[in-house]
Simulated scan of single mutants.
Amino acid sequence: MDFSGKDKAAYVQETFNSIAGHYDLMNSLMSLGMDKRWRRIAVQQVGAKPGMTILDVCCGTGQFSLELGKTVGREGKVIGLDFSQKMLDVAQQTLAQSEEKGRIQFIQGDAMELPFPESTFDGVTVGWGLRNLPNLRKGIQEMIRVVKPGGKVVSLDMAKPTCPGFKQAYWLYFDKLVPLMGQIWAKKASAYQYLHDSAVEFPAQQQLTRIFSECGLRDTKYINLAGGVVAIIAGTKPRL
Rank of each mutant, 00 (worst) to 15 (best):
F3H: 11
D7Q: 12
D24P: 02
D24C: 03
S28W: 00
L32Y: 03
K36I: 13
R37P: 00
R40M: 10
V43Y: 11
G47L: 03
A48L: 06
I54M: 09
L55M: 08
V57T: 09
C59W: 01
G60T: 03
T61D: 02
L66A: 12
G76L: 12
K77D: 00
F83I: 06
S84T: 08
Q85C: 09
A91S: 04
Q97N: 10
F106D: 04
G109S: 11
M112Q: 15
F116E: 00
P117I: 06
P117T: 09
S119F: 04
V124C: 10
R131H: 01
L133M: 15
P134A: 13
L136C: 08
K138C: 03
Q141P: 11
I144T: 11
V146D: 10
G151W: 01
V154F: 15
D157I: 01
P164C: 11
F166K: 07
F166E: 05
K167I: 03
K167C: 12
L172F: 14
D175V: 01
D175I: 03
P179A: 06
Q193V: 01
A199H: 00
A199P: 01
V200D: 07
E201F: 07
F202R: 08
I211G: 00
F212A: 04
C215W: 08
Y222V: 06
L225Q: 09
L225H: 11
G228K: 08
G235Y: 01
R239V: 13
